[in-house]
């Protein structure tokens, strides 16, 4: 009987080793209810009580060995099957991806959002105001009375004698100061209008971003610090800024602000026209008359304001040489951003 068991084991092992087909059949043949090993076990009753445990143990060992071999083989075959499938499923990874459309942000919006984030990080709110505005807010409250020569530099579109298309975002300053008491920290991005014919560098409609801070003890150093932080975040860590004296009726002292050219780092190149500096901002300390016009006491409070052209910053930043591209909205242009 022992011999029979050994034979069964050897046969099962041999069969398993050679098969590539259904191992379930093998299992049934040897271990199934009508299998060969089962048959041997059934014959155990004829053995003597002494023989029974010995043969029994051997039979169990044989069963365990066959089961293990089957499991082993089964695992092996599954692995092979999987590998075969994976091999069949190989893809050409160089083929283009499925087209999942993604829209593109307009470059002006992109630059605007980026600027907004920088100032929000410094505690600024975003203020909005009307584009069709009273002459009062656009000029008079900003220390530009009627027939002031400064009006010449901003050729303005008029609706009526007292209503115009705002020529700057500065009127929002006044509206904010009328409505809110210091501390004030706002930026106001938006559209402005000037009577310039459309060409590569002029547009009758463009965007500005105005900033205003009013509080006790605000200094010109704070203005420079704030703009320096902005410039570094917008144009890169090594960016420097330069103040040049200038005149705006609604700030005093006033400055034009240059940033060091972020292309050449200040050495002079095509982008900065060899200057090493690019003019991007106008700024200054809010004129006491303007504060007074808005009901804020200039003896107690001081503040600064700044403004910049969004198109100019965006054009410089991305090397765009024609302002008209922004408003033509050719998809081939939009998709680059």
């Amino acid at each position: 009987m022992k011999q029979t068991l050994e034979n069964i084991k050897a046969a099962a092992m041999a069969e398993l080793a050679s098969t590539n087909a259904d191992i379930e059949q093998i299992r049934v043949r040897y271990l199934g209810k009508k299998g060969e090993l089962t048959a041997v076990l059934r014959g155990m009753g004829q053995l003597s009580p002494e023989e029974r445990p010995v043969v029994g143990q051997l039979a169990n060992e044989v069963r365990a060995a066959i089961e293990a071999a089957i499991a082993e083989k089964s695992k092996e075959m599954k692995e092979k099957e999987l590998n075969d499938r994976l091999a069949r499923e190989k893809l050409d990874v160089t083929m283009p991806g499925a087209s999942i459309r993604m829209g593109h942000q307009h470059p002006l919006t992109r630059a605007q959002r980026e600027m907004e984030e920088i100032f929000i990080g410094m505690g600024f709110e975003i203020a909005e105001g009307p584009e069709v505005e009273y002459d009062y807010y656009n000029f008079q409250a900003l220390n530009i009375p009627e027939n002031h020569p400064a009006r010449d530099t901003q050729d303005t579109f008029y609706i009526t004698e007292n209503i115009l298309l705002r020529s700057q975002t500065s009127p929002v300053q006044v509206r904010v100061m009328e409505q809110k008491k210091p501390p004030i920290r706002v930026i106001s991005p938006g559209r402005v209008y000037r009577s310039d014919a459309l060409d590569a560098t002029h547009s009758p409609l463009f965007h500005q971003m105005e900033g205003l801070v009013v509080d006790k003890g605000i200094t010109m150093s704070d203005l420079k610090g704030t703009l320096e932080t902005f410039a570094r975040k917008m144009f890169g860590d090594s960016t420097q800024i330069r103040f040049r004296p200038h005149h705006f009726p609604f700030t005093e002292p006033s400055a034009e602000v240059d940033v060091s050219c972020f292309v050449c780092g200040g050495k002079g190149c095509r982008v900065c026209k060899g200057e090493g500096w690019i003019e991007i901002l106008g700024a200054g300390m809010v004129h006491p008359f303007v504060l007074q016009n808005c009901g804020i006491d200039p003896e107690v409070y001081s503040g600064f304001a700044f403004g910049m052209g969004l198109e100019r910053v965006t054009m410089t930043r991305y090397g765009i040489d024609d302002i008209r591209l922004f408003y033509e909205n050719d998809e081939r242009f939009l998709k680059q951003f």
Binding site: G123, E125, I126, G225
Partner: peptide
């Protein structure tokens, strides 16, 4: 102040951070 500053040199303005009451900031 401007007269004095522009001759003294705008480049001599040091940069400082605003030192005032905290403001909330952010979008509506």
């Amino acid at each position: 102040a401007e007269e004095i500053m522009r001759i003294y040199g705008y480049d001599k303005i040091v940069s400082t951070n605003i030192c005032a009451e905290t403001t909330e900031g952010g979008r509506t």
